[in-house]
Design a protein around this nucleic acid. Structure first.
Length: 279
DNA sequence: TTGCAGGGGCATC
DNA sequence: GATGCCCCTGCA
């Protein structure tokens, strides 16, 4: 299946930009696992990607949403190009978009990300799949373990996988999801502020992880997760921001960029990590 | 070998 | 709001 974007899209940049942890790459083809679907995606032109799938079949509109192509990116980019903080980075990052992940997998992945690093996070989620995931039908891949499977593994099992102090938070969160019968998909109905508040009610989920989950798992482009990289980037771009806490910067970013704050954040994050912003 | 920071969050003051 | 602690890894 061929998916087409309204403006140039950079699949590799998007997948490797730190928003998604469940992927591998081989010869410019990205294997991405979400829920019970295994996707093989390849860039075929500036505005097109080719996607093959195995396991549970996703519709064209679901795939379009997953790759962040259902958003009117043309208007978003036009808006961000006028911004004095972002203009210089747009030529490099205009192909970047925000993918829409499975909310539960996204939540647990970002819980695992606290005070960690990307290679380690990717290994953690891969180990979780390999050890307790369920084989996805008609493939050799394993799905991300369900809350019940994680509860059965337990805090100790999570610690053995190298999750460290995050193990207790993840185990407790999965236990609450099972016991209370929480269906995160239904949280789609919530307003963005209700959603982030609800997500923060899980132990181990503060503002940053709640914003990340709302952005990458619920498609809320009006969020602005502030981590150490975004904080550094903003401090460097405007010394007046250097005294602000992460919470304040989060509010500041949402006010400044509104419906496009999420993409603005991802651009700043990538630029900072790629040493394009001298600190 | 040791030291340190890495996409935070929470309790305590 | 500031500080210390939480665990574990990778890298200097």
């Amino acid at each position: 299946m061929i998916l087409t974007s309204d403006v140039p899209l950079d699949l590799g940049l998007t997948v490797t930009s730190g928003q998604l942890f469940h992927w591998t790459e081989e010869n410019a083809q990205f294997k991405i696992i979400q829920d019970r679907t295994v996707l093989y995606a390849r860039q075929v032109s500036q505005i097109q990607i080719e996607v093959q799938q195995a396991g549970k079949t996703m519709s064209r509109s679901e795939l379009s949403e997953l790759f962040g192509l259902n958003i009117h990116r043309k208007a978003t980019l036009k808006h961000l190009q006028k911004d004095r903080f972002l203009a210089e980075f747009l030529p490099t990052y205009s192909g970047l978009t925000i993918m829409r992940q499975n909310p539960y997998e996204c939540l647990i992945s970002f819980m695992a990300s606290a005070m960690s690093n990307i290679p380690r996070i990717m290994r953690n989620v891969q180990d979780l799949r390999a050890q307790i995931g369920t084989t996805i039908k008609r493939t050799e891949e394993k799905s991300f373990p369900s809350p019940k499977q994680i509860v059965e593994l337990g805090e100790l099992g999570l610690r053995k996988l190298g999750l460290g102090y995050r193990a207790r938070y993840i185990a407790t969160t999965c236990d609450r999801i099972v016991v209370d019968g929480i269906r995160l998909q239904e949280w789609n109905e919530k307003s963005t502020s209700d959603l982030t508040n609800s997500l923060s009610s899980f132990e181990g989920v503060g503002g940053k992880i709640a914003e990340c989950t709302a952005l990458f798992g619920f498609g809320r482009w009006d969020t602005f997760p502030v981590d150490v990289w975004v904080k550094r980037a903003l401090n460097a771009l405007d010394p007046e921001l250097s005294g602000m806490s992460a919470d304040k910067l989060c509010e500041w970013g949402k006010k400044r960029w509104g419906q496009n704050a999420g993409l603005a954040q991802q651009i700043l994050f990538c630029a900072a990590r790629n040493n394009q912003i001298p600190f």
